[in-house]
Write a protein that binds this DNA or RNA. Structure first.
Lengths: 359, 359
DNA sequence: GAATTTTGCTAAAACGCTTGAACACTCCTG
DNA sequence: CAGGAGTGTTCAAGCGTTTTAGCAAAATTC
């Protein structure tokens, strides 16, 4: 065999004499020919097989041929042989849409890369049909596994086709226990940390504006608040817990109620609420943190870091979620089936809470 | 390499005779056997070749076999044959890091998907070495082409290896003319639109707080301001153009100077500046839009839509940039080499500019 | 110096699919 | 009824790798 002849040039176009614009298609065989060895040898050299015995001189010759020709392995051919690609799929319901949840992609991509994997992403906008197609595509490309992620922490059910592959749920979990590996933020610890920021500021009477919308975050963040109070020996007072829709308007609208509580500190369900609350407090002539200390939750950079004063808050560890998802998928981190792995939400202290007790 | 063995559990470890949990590897051949035809026939059925003549009865049988077996084509094998995959690469210097530029990914992914392509993304954080690896990876996977994107509009030089593939620059451009296809936001039109929002509000004396940092945006947005004034028959007054660092602090810090100008309207280089300016103006007891109308630029949702009052601004069309990049790559949109294609920055009017003239 | 081991390399069979050429029919057409 | 035209299907040659078994020559052993 060893069919097609070539005019001397470069650019191999098998069969057809037309030149490709982009030069490359240099194959293993061409390298082998130039180096005067078999393709097997070249393959062995490239993959640095430890128990392959290759003379230094040969290895040398092959390496030279490779660089001289500018050879690039064809990953498809490799994958075909090995049966699985160096891809990890990431199915997201809206991660690319939502600014800060984009960090999930970022974390997954960094971690994947670290282990020699590339990310194949698909944004499904929650569309079930699209989602199915996306998963099918990933399976066809023989991904090593799939990360199924949501833009906010919530329960989800698992698409049937996902089961055809290894997978890990990221920022979501299956309501049926034992159904899947999953990694989520530790809302409770986060709520506790947020409250502790205020406790450290010397506050003992702390309000919490929770969300009206049911979600794991709503329960967890409240629980964390209670835990922190208990640890500090402060009795929990339900009257100090307000509720509002978790956005700027909600925060702004909660101002009135909050003022009635006459607290010196308030912990908001999220940063957007805190942002609205800032406006409300300001309109009432109150200054942060002197009249009232505020902490948020989420650490949405654009907001939290740039409010005046900058907002103390707790980070939603999106980057870490993505990274941990990849590690769990690859079997590098423990990944119990029984319950989701929880990633810490680290506190970020800024100027919205004074360092010393104002009391 | 491929070290750890596993007890039978799941997780196929190549080499070991352990069964895969995930059943699939159903091949064309198996389908063919079940249907009692050759693999060629099955292939023809699947790909719906128009000039393939297949009896309805046969087609039927094959289709059944396919669903019965849950057959999934192996995309790698397909690609190997065809020479190019259904992948489009997206190399980003920080798109995933930067919240709103993430829309580039989103737009690219939607558009790619629409044409049957999947996105292969790599975030390089501007690291040249990583970038090279990322591009190499994409070339090895025989991507149809590569989108090279930056998180803010700027000139860039083109990595050598990028030339081995089709590519389009997104949100950036090459300083050497004719070097590459590129798509960027139309800063000038954007600046003009921003200014026009204020003109429509009845303002004739409009300040512009430009950035101190050199960038295409800085020049373009200023030019747009001038164009808008000229079109309205208002002479350009350099005294009305201030400069500040383009972030909240900068905007806040520019308040003093701005007040000296005694203008009723101000156009800020970006939303973050406007956000800072809001604080500055408020501290001086001025109300927006009654005492002073404000427009920004970028339309960073988290900021612009949720300030009080919501900020009128101009959208940086990240989504469209991504989508247009894909279309240009696939040859669906014209893509001149001489100069970058410009995408409009549509105005977004909110409450920071009053509808009627306050004059 | 024969037997054995080691070293260096290659042949060739996969991997799962596509595709043009070829084959075997059945219908027409004149 | 021979020759041509359709029609339905299969053959077999790739696509670019990896990898195992095996071969020949060189080195080592006794």
């Amino acid at each position: 065999m060893i069919s097609q002849e070539r005019e001397s040039g470069n650019a191999a176009t098998p069969g057809v004499p037309v030149k490709r614009t982009h030069v490359h298609p240099v194959t293993l065989r061409e390298v082998a020919e130039l180096a005067g060895v078999s393709t097997a040898t070249v393959s062995l050299v490239i993959n640095k097989k430890k128990n392959a015995r290759i003379a230094d001189e040969t290895r040398q010759r092959v390496t030279e041929a490779i660089t001289q020709l500018g050879y690039r392995p064809n990953a498809m051919a490799k994958t075909l042989v090995s049966g699985t690609s160096k891809f990890i799929g990431l199915v997201a319901d809206g991660v690319a849409t939502t600014p800060f949840a984009g960090q999930i992609i970022h974390g997954a991509q960094d971690e994947a890369w670290k282990h020699g994997y590339a990310l194949l992403i698909a944004n499904t906008e929650g569309n079930r049909e699209l989602e199915k197609d996306a998963i099918a595509m990933m399976l066809e490309y023989k991904v090593r596994g799939i990360l199924y992620s949501t833009w906010f922490h919530r329960p989800t059910d698992i698409p049937e086709t996902l089961r055809e592959s290894d997978f890990v749920l990221v920022n979501c979990f299956s309501p049926e226990a034992g159904a899947a590996r999953a990694v989520v933020p530790d809302e409770t610890q986060g709520g506790q940390s947020a409250t502790e920021i205020l406790l450290r500021g010397g506050h003992r009477r702390i309000a919490f504006i929770n969300a009206t919308t049911p979600a794991p975050a709503r329960d967890g963040r409240l629980q964390g608040y209670k835990d922190a109070l208990e640890a500090a020996g402060i009795p929990f007072d339900p009257a100090l817990v307000l509720e509002a829709y978790p956005d700027q308007e909600g925060g702004y609208g909660a101002t009135g109620q909050l003022l009635k509580l006459e607290v010196g500190a308030v912990y908001c369900y999220n940063d957007r609420m805190a942002m609205g609350l800032y406006d409300g407090l300001r309109e009432n002539g109150l200054s942060i943190p002197d009249d009232i200390a505020v902490v948020g939750f989420d650490n949405q950079e654009v907001i939290a870091a740039h409010l005046r004063p900058p907002l103390s808050t707790v980070s939603l560890p999106h980057y870490e979620l993505g990274a941990a998802g990849v590690r769990m998928l690859l079997g590098l981190d423990a990944a119990p089936l029984e319950s989701a792995v929880k990633i810490a939400c680290p506190p970020v202290e800024r100027a919205s809470v004074a360092v010393h007790s104002p009391a």
